[in-house]
Design a protein around this nucleic acid. Structure first.
Lengths: 223, 223
DNA sequence: ACCCCTTTGTGTTAAATGTACACAGTTAAT
DNA sequence: ATTAACTGTGTACATTTAACACAAAGGGGT
């Protein structure tokens, strides 16, 4: 057996699918590659993990420095260690989902010269570089499972929200349609949310009541 | 910013909680440390990941070479990248659960001089080295979620099994007791298993019918 | 002021699922 | 034959889910 200490050195990258609600649509934040290979294709944000930081630290830094985003709720999703994900280097990818509310998402910084970003509807993803399409798909699948087993969506709706807004988010992520009355009944009897007493004035039609998530909720199956 | 390529070299270890059914008990396979630090404490099996293999390959190799076990069903659980997990080195741990049926588990090799192994009931875990107790706990928690969202337990029961055996496995992992009639009704109406027509002779009491899992079952919530 | 359009809020019924519960059947051992 | 140990089975009740239609509140145009 050859002794080659270098063989135990691995390069890790973090990749995060940051979701938010934008005008009633569930969207994910992608970056556009400006150099070869895959110039013009889109990638997930992330960074190379150094050995003096945790993966979460790395992601938080990457997000804040490159994108200006703060207060992203993170959850670990999956590791991709197959040898052929990048033809040039052997890099292990650690993927996370990130959830950010629509107010905080507004503080995303303007694109720099070297970075072009855009929010994409999760049903309408552009051409992606490397294996990022596969990773994003897995992340969306993870989010899908997550929202039926927990109330993580409260990270997308920290401020007051309406039940139709919440329902639309569920419908997009789960790719189904739901009955408005049953959805409402479900969430109210679950006790996850509370009526704030206010109404969402200004839109079309009858104003919707505003709700907010309660704080101290433990996880449970929702659907 | 200092340029230090070495800072992007990370050491990864795989750690796997291998579960099986042994005499009606759900057990996990642990190794005993024979050298300092933590001599005499128990650890999860695993290995250092080299940069020419996937994590799954590393685990499969580790399990086979050190333990002689084959055909372990693996599923990724969690990554632990906090900086203080090992006071000496910065090692990132990637944890998996492994499920092996009671027949294959019999082929575990005898302990070598440098390796002592033992199966422990999941409710009765010994003193563990490093942060392995925490990791094992997370893995058991993961298994718990998994068995209510899928029929992974079929990896523990590939050959014919009885419904009371299956029920006991669920009860131990979920740490609950269940009604025999309702459990039976549930599993039979779910259509996950089928009666083989044989009976489990030789034990105490009335012989139980033998069942086996059907093959082509897609995932769904069980409980 | 009135009408129209759009969107939200609400209750009931039937079906399916989950839960609680007690006794008879089969084998081995004495 | 009796006992001990364990497995198999059905029914009634409670809970949850699923389907479904109309009234209420606001905005805009006339």
């Amino acid at each position: 057996m050859d002794f080659n200490p270098g063989k135990y050195y691995n390069i890790l990258e973090s990749l995060v699918s940051i979701f938010t609600i934008d005008q009633g649509q569930v969207k994910v934040l992608l970056l556009r590659k400006k150099s070869e290979p895959y110039r013009g294709y889109w990638i997930l944000p992330g960074g190379i993990v150094s050995n003096d930081e945790t993966i979460e630290m790395n992601i938080i830094d990457s997000i804040e420095v490159k994108l200006g985003l703060k207060d992203v709720y993170l959850e670990q999703c999956h590791i991709f260690s197959n040898l052929d994900r990048d033809p040039d280097d052997r890099i292990i990818a650690i993927s996370y989902i990130g959830l950010i509310d629509n107010v905080s998402a507004l503080f995303k910084r303007e694109d720099r010269d070297d970075i072009q970003t855009a929010w994409f509807k999760i049903g309408d993803i552009p051409k992606m570089a490397y294996d990022h399409a596969r990773i994003l798909k897995k992340n969306i699948e993870f989010l899908r499972r997550k929202i039926v087993n927990s109330n993580v969506l409260k990270s997308l709706f920290p401020s007051d929200f309406t039940l139709p807004e919440l329902q639309k988010a569920y419908e997009q992520i789960l790719n189904v349609t739901m009955d408005r009355r049953n959805f409402r009944k479900k969430f109210i009897t679950l006790g996850l949310i509370e009526d704030t007493g206010d109404k969402n004035v200004g839109g079309n039609g009858r104003p919707a009541k505003l709700y907010s998530f309660k704080e101290d909720i433990k996880e449970r199956n929702l659907f």
